[in-house]
């Protein structure tokens, strides 16, 4: 019998609560009963493993999925997926989705009066390499209005979905851009108590990976729950 190698809890203050009334939809969707604390078992420390053969060559390049290039400012988004001990999370699936440059999603429910771009779907996927690195080429998403409160605008963002090594590392988050005045008014951003944890959602200008005559790069590192020092003794 092998004891499972358990995961640490997320850093205190780094995660939002389920209920955050300024984000109105949480009011009827946050559980009111307490969560039940249970031990980590083989069922949660494991999770889906994805292979290179599941990723098409252009899945990471959102600017080359159609006949022509999409409108907007081309950019590179790159970074690393790490655990909280600084170890790279290798060969893990990273999925992204975003609005187009005008702030419109290619989704039937998006009623924002902004043009769709026939050359932009807004979805990408890739696997991290052995050092936990990933890289996407895309265009800068636009801000868009939503009906949460009066004159509410979502700051430009990219949704990230990451699997990690086990289901306990599963994370969906959003990446923002530096210097955005909309962030301070955005309940998605302000729902996080720890100021440093908020800052972690803001990408940084990445001159080193900016490609001359092609595109500016932004860096966005993602930190998942790490492992306890030794396998749990029972």
């Amino acid at each position: 019998m092998h004891d499972v190698h358990s995961y640490r809890k997320p850093s205190p203050g780094s995660q939002p609560d389920y209920l955050y009334p300024p984000y109105k939809s949480t009011v009827k969707r946050a559980p009111v009963q307490p969560l039940v604390l249970v031990p980590q078992t083989l069922s949660e420390i494991t999770g889906p493993v994805f292979g290179r053969n599941e990723i098409a060559p252009l899945d990471h390049d959102l600017t080359r999925q159609h006949q022509s290039a999409p409108l907007g400012e081309r950019m590179i988004v790159n970074g690393r997926v790490l655990d909280d001990g600084g170890c790279p999370v290798a060969n893990t699936l990273v999925e992204i989705w975003q609005s187009n440059a005008a702030g419109r999603y290619r989704h039937a429910d998006d009623n924002h009066d902004a043009p769709l771009d026939p050359n932009f779907t807004g979805c990408g996927r890739t696997l991290t390499d052995d050092a936990g690195r990933y890289r996407f080429v895309t265009i800068k998403p636009g801000a868009y209005p939503w009906r949460n409160h009066h004159n509410a605008w979502r700051p430009p963002h990219i949704h990230f979905s990451v699997f990690g090594c086990g289901f306990l590392q599963r994370l969906v988050t959003q990446m923002y851009f530096p210097g955005d005045p909309l962030l301070a008014l955005d309940p998605m951003y302000t729902c996080i108590a720890d100021e440093r944890a908020r800052q972690r959602l803001i990408s940084s200008f990445d001159w080193e990976n900016t490609v001359p005559e092609f595109a500016i790069a932004y860096r966005f590192d993602i930190v998942l729950r790490g492992r306890d020092a030794t396998p749990m003794e029972k």
């Binding site: 780094s14 995660q15 655990d83 999603y105 290619r106 779907t121």
Partner: peptide
């Protein structure tokens, strides 16, 4: 010193554009 874990954020209303092709 451990790194601060990245905050979770909602998938929002349009997650299906990403998940639907890989159901």
């Amino acid at each position: 010193m451990n790194e601060l874990t990245t905050a979770s954020q909602t998938v929002g209303p349009f997650v299906s554009i990403s998940f639907a092709p890989s159901l």
